[in-house]
């Protein structure tokens, strides 16, 4: 226990300040986590979803390119297929460097595998298209469609994975923002308890002894010899009581 009133008051407020400072630091850390989660969503998951959209778009174009090629527009068809191929390769490259979800690399491997099958089929069809009849062209195109859907499905699965990732990150954000507020809420409750306790101690160790001292002075008469305010502490109020008694002695 501290003896002087000054140190008691100072220590009490220091404790309160410490509690509030730590609450603020904790809240900042938690809000920072929310910020990082947003960055994760924006930079990583959103980027991955954008790339899967590019892949889907390019895949559709490659399919159109094949159709154009088979219809006789070989130059435009060939350009479209090549452009789509390079777009998908770029998107896969970006996706590979931006793995954010568990097993995402396996999903990308699956996209590569399915796309490779589709692209090889497209190439084989374009190479052999001169020798094919219209019916054969039609049949070959329908066969490549199976591979087209398989590649599309694998890209959609990759997109779904990242969308789920966004949903999870958002839930985490919600949880983190709630958690960031908690130190403040607990601080408010703790500060109220602290205030009630402080009120009790101030009354017990400051107000009551002073009241007893005032009463002692008020009811003092010379025959009593000295004032006894029943102060059992060794703080400034006890010193005041002793000094009043010294003063009485000196005045006598």
């Amino acid at each position: 226990m501290l003896k002087s009133l000054k140190s008691k008051i100072f220590s009490s407020f220091m404790l309160l300040v410490l509690m509030l400072v730590i609450a603020a630091i904790m809240s900042i850390i938690e809000f920072n986590k929310v910020g990082l989660t947003i960055t994760d969503v924006m930079d990583d998951n959103y980027k991955s979803i954008e790339q899967t959209k590019n892949m889907l778009d390019a895949l559709e174009r490659e399919d159109s390119g094949l159709l154009m090629y088979l219809m006789g527009n070989q130059e435009t068809g060939s350009q479209t297929i090549d452009y789509a191929y390079s777009t998908i390769q770029d998107a896969i490259k970006i996706g590979r460097n931006n793995i954010t979800e568990k097993d995402e690399d396996k999903y990308i491997d699956n996209v590569i595998k399915e796309y490779k099958k589709f692209h090889s089929a497209v190439k084989q069809t374009t190479d052999a298209s001169i020798t094919l009849t219209l019916e054969e062209k039609n049949e070959t195109y329908l066969q490549t469609q199976q591979l087209f859907f398989a590649a599309k499905k694998s890209i959609n699965e990759l997109m779904q994975l990242n969308q789920d990732g966004i949903y999870n990150q958002t839930s985490l954000m919600k949880e983190n923002s709630k958690r960031a507020m908690m130190p403040a809420i607990v601080s408010i409750v703790a500060a109220i308890v602290f205030a009630l306790l402080l009120n009790f101690f101030i009354s017990e160790y400051f107000i009551n002894p002073i009241s007893r001292l005032i009463n002692g002075v008020k009811t003092y008469y010379p025959e009593m010899g000295r004032i006894d305010a029943k102060i059992n502490l060794r703080d400034e109020i006890k010193t005041l009581e002793s000094e009043i008694n010294n003063l009485i002695t000196r005045l006598k």
């Binding site: 226990m1 009490s12 410490l18 509690m19 904790m26 958690r179 607990v186 601080s187 703790a190 059992n232």
Partner: peptide, 26 residues
């Protein structure tokens, strides 16, 4: 991610627990 709840609860318990020790004599 449970560091904040556990640590801050510990801080609050410490501060509210220390507070009476400042004032109350032996």
């Amino acid at each position: 991610n449970s560091l904040t709840p556990l640590f801050y609860s510990a801080v609050v318990c410490t501060i509210l627990g220390l507070f009476p020790q400042i004032f109350v004599e032996k």
